[in-house]
Simulated scan of single mutants.
Amino acid sequence: MFIKNTWYVVCALTELDALGNKPLGRTICNEKMVFFKGPDGQLAAVEDFCPHRGAPLSLGKVCEGKLVCGYHGLEMGCNGQTVHMPGQRVRGFPAIKSYAVLQRYGFVWVWPGDQAQADAAKMPMFEFFDNPAWAYGGGLYHVQADYRLMVDNLMDLTHETYVHATSIGQPEIDETPSTTTVEGDQVILQRHMAGIKAPPFWQMAMSANGLDPQATVDRWQICRFTPPSHIMIDVGVALAGKGGFDAAPEHKAYSVVVDFITPETETSHWYHWGMARQFKPEDAALTDKIRQGQGGIFNEDMEMLQLQQKNISAWPERKLLMLNIDAGGVQSRRIIDRLLAQEQPTEITA
C-alpha cells in the first residue's frame, strides 16, 4: 500500500521543539513511531511500543537524551535498545525497531523502510527553503482520506472553479486544456491561461507586489509530482503579454505551492502545505496573510476529500470513472504502483 524505502515529512521541527521534554507520537505508513532528541540533540525515531508491557512510549518523556516510558520508567536509547529501568536488569531486552530520521528544510523526515537503504542523498532538493530570496509559510492538516486522493486532487486543478470559487477558482480553468507529461518518475501537468482577469487571491497578491489588481493577466499552473507523494505547483499571474511564467519579476506575482503528503493509514494522511514566494520575501505580515488565505483554501479541499473517502468506503465495489482531466493523477498513481511493486519481495519458485 505504501512506498517505504523513501523519505516522508513527519512534522515541522518547531512542532517537535515545542513539546519540550515530551516525545512526538505519529503513525506513518501504518507504523506507530515516536520521535525525540537524543543526548546531543540528534533526532531519533523508534517504534511507539515499550518492550516491557507494550505501553506507547509517546506517553512518556525525554530525560537526558533517553526516552523514558511513562508506565514503569523503562529508558530507551536512540537505537531502540533498552538502556535502564529502576531496580531491574533490562539490558538483555531485544531492541525494538528504530528508523532513519533527519532534519532538513525546517522539517523532520523519516525513512519507514529498510534503515540500511536510507540515503540522505535521496532527499528531494528545493531552492526556496533556507533562501533569503524566498519567503515561506505553511501549516498541517490531518486528513481522514487515502493519501492518493490528495494526489489526485492536486494533480487536477479543474476543481478550483467549484471548490474554491471565491478565492482561486475561475471559469477559464475549465475552459483551458492542460497537458500532462511524464519524465522518469516525475509527472508534470501544465495549464496556461492568457488574457484573463485574476481571481480574488491573485488580485491580493498583485496588489502586494505593486501591480494593478484589475489588469488583464496571463495565469499559469504547473503541477509537479515526485514520489513518494510530494507535489510542487508553480502558480502565478503576470501582466498580459509580458511573458507569462517567464515574465520579469516586476511584472508578475509568482509562488510555489508546497505539498508534502505523508500516509498515515489506508484512509488517512498528514498533509503539510505551504507557499513559497519570490515577491516581497521580507514582508512577514504578507507571509502570514497568504498563509491564512491558503489555509482556508486547503480546508475546503480537506472537507471534500474526507466526504469523498466516506463515500468510497461505503461503496468499495464501485469503480470510479476517469476523464481526460484525471491524466495527472492517473500517471502519478502508475508511478506509485510501479515503485510499490519494486519493493515487494520476489517469489522463489521451485
Rank of each mutant, 00 (worst) to 15 (best):
L149R: 15
E160S: 11
P94D: 12
L154T: 02
E127S: 13
Y136F: 15
D146H: 13
A121H: 09
Y105F: 15
W134I: 08
K122L: 15
W134K: 02
Q144L: 13
F107H: 14
Q144D: 14
V110Q: 01
D114C: 14
A100I: 01
D146T: 00
T161M: 10
A121T: 12
S98H: 15
K97D: 08
N153E: 07
N131I: 09
V151M: 12
Y147T: 06
L140W: 14
K97M: 02
A133L: 14
R148G: 02
T161D: 10
T161P: 00
V151A: 09
Y136V: 14
H142Q: 15
Y99R: 04
V101W: 03
F126G: 00
Y147H: 15
G138A: 03
V110E: 01
Y99A: 04
A118S: 14
I96M: 07
L102V: 09
A100L: 07
D130G: 05
N131E: 12
Q117T: 07
F107G: 01
V143F: 03
R148Y: 00
G138T: 10
L149H: 09
R104H: 06
D152N: 15
D152G: 06
P112A: 11
A145V: 07
P94W: 04
P112N: 11
Y162H: 13
Y147K: 04
G113K: 04
K97N: 10
W111I: 05
F107L: 10
W134D: 08
D114A: 13
H159N: 08
M150H: 06
N131K: 04
D119L: 10
D119P: 05
A135Q: 12
